[in-house]
Every structure is written in C-alpha cells, then in structure tokens.
Design a protein around this nucleic acid. Sequence first.
DNA 1: GGTCCCTAGATACC
DNA 2: ACAGGTATCTAGGGACC
Length: 825
Amino acid sequence: MKLEFIPVDYDYFDFEGRNYAKIIGRDKSGKRVCLVDSCDVFFWAILKDKSNDKEIKKLQEKIGKIKLDTKGRKTEVEKTEVHEKNFLGQKVKALKIFATNYKDMHEIADKLGMPEIEKRRGYDLGFITHYIIEKKLNPLCWYEISGDILNANEFGGIENIDVDLCIKVNSISPIKKEEFSPKVLAFDIEADELGIGSGEILMISLVSENFRKVITWKGQKKDLDNLPYLEIVKDEAELLEKFSEIVKKISPDILTGYFSDGFDLPYLKSRAEKFKIKLNLGLDGSQPKFSRGIMTTAKIDGIPHIDLLRFIQTAYSQYMSSETMSLNEVANEFLGESKKDFQHTHSSKIEINSWEKYFEYNLQDSILTYKIFEKIWPDLLEFTRIMQEPIFDVSRNGISKNVEDYIIHNLEKFNEIPEKRPTYDEIGERKGREKYEGAFVFTPTPGLYENLTIFDFTSMHASIIVTYNLSKATLLEEKEAKKEKDFVESPEFELNNEKKKFYFSKKPGFFPSLLKEVVELRKKYKKELKEKPDVIKKARSNAFKLLANAYYGYLGFFGARYYSVEAAASTLAFVRKFNKWTMEKAKEKGYEVIFGDTDSIGFLLGKKSKEDAKQFLKELNSELPGIMELELEDFYKRGIWVTKRTGEFGAKKKYALIDYDDKLKIRGFETVRRDWCTLARETQNKVLKLVLEDGNEKRAVEYIKKIVKEVNTRKVDLKELIIRTQLKKPISEYRTISPHVIAAQKMQEKEMPIDPGTLIEYYIAETPDKKKLIREKVKLSDEEGEYNIEYYLKHQLLPAIENILQVFNVNINEILENKKQKTLF
DNA sequence: GGTCCCTAGATACC
DNA sequence: ACAGGTATCTAGGGACC
C-alpha cells in the first residue's frame, strides 16, 4: 500500500540480530502510523595510499571472515566493497564494511589493526543518524511511503504499539508539502516539596487544542461548579493513573513541559514508583526512560517529549532580555503574559477556599507552556528539518551538536567519510591547550558624543570562514601551500608565544561550503523579516544567525569532530584585520572613530550627513572580499563612554546610546547587570536617559539628590535593594566566601532547596555591632532588618553613577557628602 | 587595624 | 563536557607595616 507520511519520532529495535528503525508519524488524514524499516549497516576502512589491488583483495577476504559473538548476539562482516571516497577533502580508497548489527561495528573496527588500513571511520554516528542518512527519511518532512501492512505478530518488538497502522517500508520518496500542525499536549504538576519525589503531587494540569484540564485529589464539590476544567480523583495514585489515561486518550504528537526533564517527569516517575503504578505513557506501553549524566532527559516511546526550557536556552537565551529563564519571565517576554499570583504553601496549610486559586495557577502554567510552544514551533520545526535529527534530540542539543549534525547529514554530497569523535585523550589535550588571541576591542576615550553611527559586519566570523575557506580539511602545511599555485594566507599572529601564519587551500572545502548555505538561509530570513516583520520571523532569523555564528565556536570546541585551532585562530586574525581596516578607512575619510568591538565600529558623523555615511558604507562593501559585508547598525543622536573605575582609561564594553526616536541602547553598564540592586540599576538607567536626552547633567544631578535623600531617610522599599547573584557550584567548593555564599548558607539552614544555578537573593543590613565585612551584614529577603544606608550609597548607588557624572566634571562625592552633613545637622 | 595588591567569581559584550 | 575570547568590577584574602 501507499501513503503520505511525516516522521515525528525515531527509535530502533533489534530483531533476530539485525537493527530495525521504528518511526512514528502521521499520515495526511492524521492517523498515527508506525513504520518499520531497515538499512545497510556499514563503516569505512580507509586504505593506505600504496595498497595495490591484489593486497586489497586479500585484505577483503581476511576482513570478510570476521565474526563476533558478544552480548548474546552473533554479528559478522557480511560483505566488503572498495570505493573511491573523500576524507577531509583528500581522495582516498576505502573499504565499505557491511556488518549485521550497528552496535557491534566499533568492536569490528577494533579488530582491523591490519597494516594496509590507515583509519577506521563511520562507526560512531548512532543507528538513527545512520538510518536517516541512508534512507533519507528526514524528520518532519513529508514522504510517500510504499510498504506492506504489518501484522501484530511480526517483528516481536511492535505487537503492543498503540498506532492506527503499522507498515514495513518498501520505498520512500519525498513529496513537496510543508505544512504540519502537530497535536501538542502541555502539562505541569504541583507538588508539596521541591525535592524530586519528596512530597505529594497535588494536581496535574493538561492543555491541548480545545482542551483544558486540572486533575486533583484535593478540592471540593463546590470547586467543580466553579471550575469546569477540574476533575477530582480519589487519591494521588489515581491522579497518576488518570494522567496516563488522558495522555493516551489525547494521543499527542508532542508532549511538552517547562523544565519537565528536570522536575515534572522525574517527579511523576518517583511517585509512580512509590505507589507501584506503571506510568505507561509510551505508545508501546513503556514508562518514560531517563538518561543518566549531568542533565537528565526524559524520553517517552513514540511521543517526543520537549522540555521547552532546554530549547529556549540554546536557541534564544542570548537574544532575550529575561534575567532568569523562569516560566514567568519567559512567558512575559514571549507572550506578554504572566503566571497567576499564588503564594506557594504546603498543602496542609492551604485553606479550603484557596484551592481554587491553586488550580487556576496550575492550569495557567500549562496554558503558558502551550502558548510558548506554539510561538517557538516554527523554529523547532526549522531546526529539526535543517539538522535532520529527531526533534527530541534537536530540542535538547547544544549549539555545537547542532552544527555537527548539520555537517554530518550533508557529507554525502561531498562524497565525504565522516570524521570520528575525539577520543578521551584528544579531548584532554585540546582542553589543555593555550588560548589563542581573540578579537580586537578599541579603547574608547570617555566623553559624551553627538551624532554618531555604528557599522557592523554581518555574521563576521562565518563570512570569513566562507570567504577564506578556513577549516580542518582545507588547512595546508606551508610546503604544500607553496606547491599549489593559489592559496589562502592568514594574517600573521602570535600563538603559544610564536609568530604564526596558516595556509589554506582555495579549493572549496565541505565545511566552508556548508556554512555558506547557512549564511544564505540566514540572509533569506532576515530579508523576509524586514519586508514583513513579526516576532516569529525575528526569532527564526536569530536562530539562523546563531547557527551561522556557532560554526566559529565549533572550530575551537574541544568536543568537535572537525576541531581546528588553526582555522579558529586564523578566523580571529582576519576578524582583527578587518575591524582595524574599517577603522582606518573611516579615519581616512575624516571620521573620528570612537568605538570598536570585534565586528563593529562606531564613529562621529561630524559635518557629514547620514547619506554620506551610507555612501561610505557602499564604498567599503565594494572593497570587501568574498561574502563579507558591512551593514548600517543605526544612527544615534548621542552616546556616552565612561572611564574604568580603576585607572584613567576608557572602559571597553560599557556605553549607552540614544537614537533619533529617543530609544536607549545600554551595554555593559550596571543597568543591564542582574547582580546589582534595582535601586542602583534604575537610578543609573534614569541618569543615562537624562544626560543623553539633554546633553548635560543638570536634571540628572537633581534626580540623584532626590534618590540619595530617599535612601538616607529610609524611604526606599526593601524590594529595590535586593541583590541577586547566582550560585554557580556547591557551597562547599567556594574558596572565597562572598556575600552570596553566606546568603546561600542561610537558605540551606532554612532547608530551602539550593543547587548550583539557584539565584540567591539577599540585602545588606545594618548591624548593631561594628562588623567589618559585608558578608557579615547579609540578610535574606524575608529576614527582618533595616537596610544599610552606607552600603547602598557607597557600594551600589555611587559606583553606578560616579563615572557618568565624571564625564561632565561633576564630583558626585561632594554631592553625597553634602547631603550627609545636611542630614546630620 | 589600615593599606596595598592580587584574584576568585559573576556577569556582560560580541 | 556539551560553542569561542575579551572585559569590568566587587569583595575577600593575604602580606606588610
């Protein structure tokens, strides 16, 4: 039979010693379909240059006899073929070695210590990745599948699977069709304790299209009248059973939660174990499977479980203004909606009438999760289609893994054999290497400037890698390079205290070629965004920018298959060169350069017009090589640069700009740092706004006087004075005991959950005795006490505004002293 | 007990 | 372990007088 099919989830099983892919997806009518398919299983043995045909024949015979009998499985080399392939851009002769079971290929490869064999590759991709490459059945793309309907008794492993149709695949062909709206189910639990499994699960909310439900074993009859979505069950055990039941009934394509890898699913698992209940969420009736490692991941058979937090962290966080990745802040930023107000209390202390609020709160969390999912779905979809890996993995992978997946799935068009993952020793070596020199940052002259503009390079690192063909495979030894007529030469730079220069081939390598595609996609989305802006296009455009920019980071990442310090360091040498080149050009034109960092420069227009600047930009672009491109970032009415707190030099990476719509752009200042109290941040923000709007300090000084007075007279709300600092490691590992470590200790004493990653909140209080250290004055947010006036003036307010006023030759200390004396008298 | 210098640690920029 | 290097700044920590 034939059907149109879109794959959503991938798994595999062994049957009679062979590997079978088990793919869950939908047909065009929305029926759930399971495909069972197999593919050739093989890896590569790259042969030494000089091997002749006779030797190769002999070698093939020898390898063909390899048999394994391990882990109760019989595997053998089934056949071998000789192929002309490329490896790292070089033509090689390689043996394609077919084996019975993918999982045994590493072991077979270990047996190939023959002198004729140079390298063994392609055994470490994982069966799913290997299958997707072989059969080209890419996730979330439509295909026409022809195959035979499978009966329940075939293949042993699939008899219990809960799908409408099971097909053994005969052929796969792609069809032009893009649209796919998965059925999504969002869920969220509420429990009495935050420690996994240590309290009772009180309720679970579930939200899908036209479906809202809160199941609970708390709650009264009257709640049912008010809350139509509420369902009351007998006890916690029944709650868990009901949850599985509803998931089964809704039968979603995707189950999503927020931090559900780390909280909701492990909690459900733990409680289910306690009550000896099977949490059979999987389509095959299995329970969620949890991976070990630093980050737990929860996998459900047949239904991709997406923890939104994981994807948002890799794909969006660097472009977000949220200071924490909490559901509330993220929902605010993505949707402009918030969690419901509800003061968490232990269930034993909740009054009968408050439960209703709790249920609403719980439901709202799932609603927000559902809506955020809808919002980022285009990116998840694009990421998955581009990386060509199952959405379960793509949504959790770090950015370097995404880069690598993109490469691995596109090697075939270059006839390339995949490089292996680095060994443990190689990783150690790479981590131990010296850092290479990074980007250039211009030292600004402190001051207030008027009428300026900023240019920046679009995806600078990526466009350099593409333009100069930089990669592990295109790197040439100096001798080789000189033999070729044409080669790329990096600027000279210092590496390990030596003058260095690297050479690269001009023959386009697969790595830069692939990156070129990514850059072009990024440009396409950016253009679409400009033509018709919306938040989704913006996020998508940013996601591609992220991928393009991550290629450079990938080159220097110790875990990368295509790691190359030479290429990474050379990229940076070009980055420095072009940044300085642009500055020189601007100076030649008569512009005064006042700012520069990595891929951007800022300069004063002076007597020149905006049109002049645009013309200058055109001229620069006509001179730039390859795909390198400068763009106009914006024009600004004013900008301020300040001195470092130590020394008289201008501070780098700290400036504030105001554009012609009076919109502020603040970088590096305390205003944008979450480890400063709100009072200091908001005061600084206001001061920057006033001086940039007016071009002088008068209103700002008045404003500061007002705030200082408020601090002195204890008019400031404690909320404004809370300092938030993240705990980065277990308390015991800190060598210096700083205020936030003391605060964390206090929290621990109160049995509040503190893990690395917790945001510690505290304030500095007055102490009756003369304590010297700041950490001795730390109090937690809910601790009684009076704020320490001196600390907040001298350690928060003053540092935030001192340098700004210094630009206007105003000594803020005098203003403060003055105030103090006045209050004294 | 105060001053000086150094650095661990957190966070930001690109 | 899970992209890179550059930079600012605070508070603690130790040497010294």
